[in-house]
Every structure is written in C-alpha cells, then in structure tokens.
Computed example of a mutant assay.
Amino acid sequence: MPMLRAAFILGLLSAVGPFAIDMYLPAMPEISRDLNADVATVQLTLTIYFVFFGIAQLFYGPWADQAGRKKPLYFGIATFILASIGCAVAPTIEWLIVFRAGQGLGGAVLMVVPRAVIRDMHTGPEATKLMAMIMLVISVSPMLAPLAGSGLIAFGGWREIFWVLCIAAVLSLVLTNKALPETLAPTDRVRVNVKNLWHGGLSLFRDPIFMGLTLMGGFGFASFMIFIASAAFVYSGQFGLSPTEFSIAFAINAIGFFAASQLAGPLSERHGTSKVIMWGAIGFAGFSAALLYITVAGWTDLPILVAGLFCAFACLGLIIPTTMVMALDPHGDIAGLASSLGGALQMLTGGIMVVITGLFFDGTATPMVAAITLCATLSLLIALPTLRAIRPTRQGTV
C-alpha cells in the first residue's frame, strides 16, 4: 500500500480515539452542571477512559499477532459504538463514567493495531515518516474537534457529541472493511498462549531500552493528558473563556505538538533518532520549567500560558513518534504485544499522573504547569541513560 494512502487510512482510524477526548473537552464544565458533579468527578470520566484505553491494549496486541490486524479492529470499533450510545443517554455521572470506560475499552484497538500495521510495513526512519504522517491526519482532532464540540453544545448540548462519535465509529468500521488490507501474513502470526505471552512480555520488561523509551514517551504523553484534563477548567475558570474561545486556545497549544511531529522523520534521517529525542527532551523540560517559574512568580496571563505550552508541546512532538518507533524496531516478531504493552504502560502512567494532579488542582494554571514540568523532568532523566545505552547496541537506528 502506498505510504500516503496508508497514512490517510490509518490516520482516520487513529483519530477516532482522540476525537473521543477532544470533542468532549469543551463540554466538561456543562456536564458538571447538568449532572450535578464536582470537577474531580468529571475529570474521572476522562481518567477512566485513559485507564481502560491502556489496559485493553494488553488484550488487543496479542490478539492482533494471532488473528491478524482486522478482526480486533472489528470487535473494538463495535464496542466503541455501543459505549458511545450509552454515553449519549447516560442519566447520571456514574453511568457516564461506566460508558466512558467502555469507550476506552473499544477505542484502544485504534491505538494498538495501526502501530502494528506500521511495523508490518516499515521500520526505522521510514516508519517514523509514516507515523508522523498519521499524526498529521490525527492533528485535525485538537484543531477541529473542540470547535465541533463547542458547536454541538450550542446546537443541542453535550449529549450530541457522543452521537457524533457513534457515527464516526460506524464510518471507521466501514473504512476498515473496505479500504484497509490485512498486513500480517498467516505465516507470520504468533499463537497466543500463556507461554508465548509470558516469554514475550518478559523479554520486553527485561529490555532496558524498550522500557526506557516507553517510559520517556509515557511521561511525555502523561503531560499532555494532564493538560487535556485540566485545560477546560483553567481556561474557563481562571481566564473566563467561553467553550469556543477555549477550543481556539487548545488548538493553538496542540498545533505546536503536531507541527513538530512532522519534523521528527526528516530530522531523524539527517541527525539520528537519538539526537532528535534528546533535543526534544531538553527543550520540553526547559520550556516547562521556565513556564513554571513564571507561573509561580504570578506573572502568568493567557498569552504567556498559551505561548509557553506551545513551545513545550512542540518539543514533545519530537519525542512521542520517535520513541514509539524506536521502541518497536527490534521487536518485529511480537510487534502487536510490544505495541500493546508500550501503549498500556504509557496510558497507565498518564492516568496515574492525572489522578495525582487532580488532588492538588485548584482551578488555576499552577498545579497543571507544575505537573507538566514534573513529567518533562522525569522524561529527560530517563532519556539520559537510555539514549547512552542505545548508541553501542543499535547503530542502525540512531
């Protein structure tokens, strides 16, 4: 399959999960009022989505290695459709939390399988290019989804968002059936049993480079999850933005991430993947720390916050796609398991950090920026020994 066509198809499939987050963000304050729930409980509807999104990846990866890439997609998307209907009709915040868990359970397949398909087709810089192209397609989510969510809120309310997500999932099911070929040949499939899973999982946990790259990406992704969970309340509470104004501010912050991700492939080819990751880690930690200093000093206004997060997340855009690809490169024979384990660890790391941040959240930017800075610092600290270890062992990928 040509790279552009593959990027378009896999990008559309991969965008459903982010849309389930980004369209929903402007509605969080309204959900709080409509279902009579406090901020922490509404944030739990996001956290539970991420947690189940992460756990379910452990199931889809091995299944995709055994049955091929398409069967898990059918099951996961169908689950997402049913859960979206449940969210749309949820009578209480408790039921919304339950059905958001179902959305995460189904949507996880759209994270695991596309990454495994990439590994089926390409490795190294070519895989990074394809991953970056897919992220370009996904990038319409943080730019357009919040605005679409704001429009739906104005038109009918927050429940309409989940009906639209249901329709998007149905279209994804059709796309999977009609346009996505099976990329894992029957001869390359790995039978799922306890022994294979145990040995495969053990080999990944014992690989310090795989774990280091996964946790680097995990803490980086956790920072973005913290921003997603907190931004609607910070921008509307501290700065008084409307849902539409919040959507614009959110899009500006996200554009930095996705624009930089498009440079990851070319930069990796020219300078080496390890250097690109290190540049990103240093910049991410540096910009985050500078923004935290400004925030704690009381100098934060809306333009400074948006600009600081734009720069920090631009550096993060160099980390996420490169660490994903580099972590999977040596594990092509268990790409599904490696993808699912890596994704699960990243999501669980993010979910834990969101919960911890929620304990200190006061509606202002300071706890959010502090938590992002902590994640950026941990990512940099992990990068230092991990990238040193890569140089003598993986000359072909650095």
Rank of each mutant, 00 (worst) to 15 (best):
L144Y: 09
T47G: 06
V369D: 00
E182D: 14
L25G: 06
I209P: 04
N177E: 10
G107S: 09
A285C: 11
I21M: 05
I304Y: 09
V325P: 00
T323W: 02
M133Q: 08
M278K: 07
S379N: 12
A169V: 02
Q57V: 08
A365W: 00
Q57H: 09
R33F: 14
L213Q: 05
W198V: 11
T45N: 03
L387N: 05
L10Y: 11
L328S: 05
G350H: 01
A383H: 05
C166P: 06
S32V: 11
M135Y: 10
F310S: 08
H122Y: 08
I153R: 01
A67K: 04
A7F: 10
H122W: 07
V164N: 05
G76A: 05
A307F: 14
G351W: 00
P26A: 15
F155T: 12
L318R: 02
P29D: 04
A249C: 11
F19I: 04
S150F: 03
T300C: 14
E30I: 13
F239Q: 08
A312F: 01
G396Q: 13
A40Y: 11
I153N: 03
P114M: 10
V174Y: 04
T183S: 14
A327I: 10
R391G: 10
W299A: 12
A259G: 09
P29L: 01
G237M: 12
L302W: 15
A20Y: 01
L267D: 06
P266Q: 15
F239I: 13
K70T: 07
V164W: 06
L10Q: 11
L291E: 06
P385N: 14
R189L: 07
R159D: 07
T45E: 02
G61I: 03
I226Y: 00
T295C: 05
R206V: 11
W95P: 02
A285Y: 00
L4M: 14
T123S: 13
S172A: 14
M278W: 10
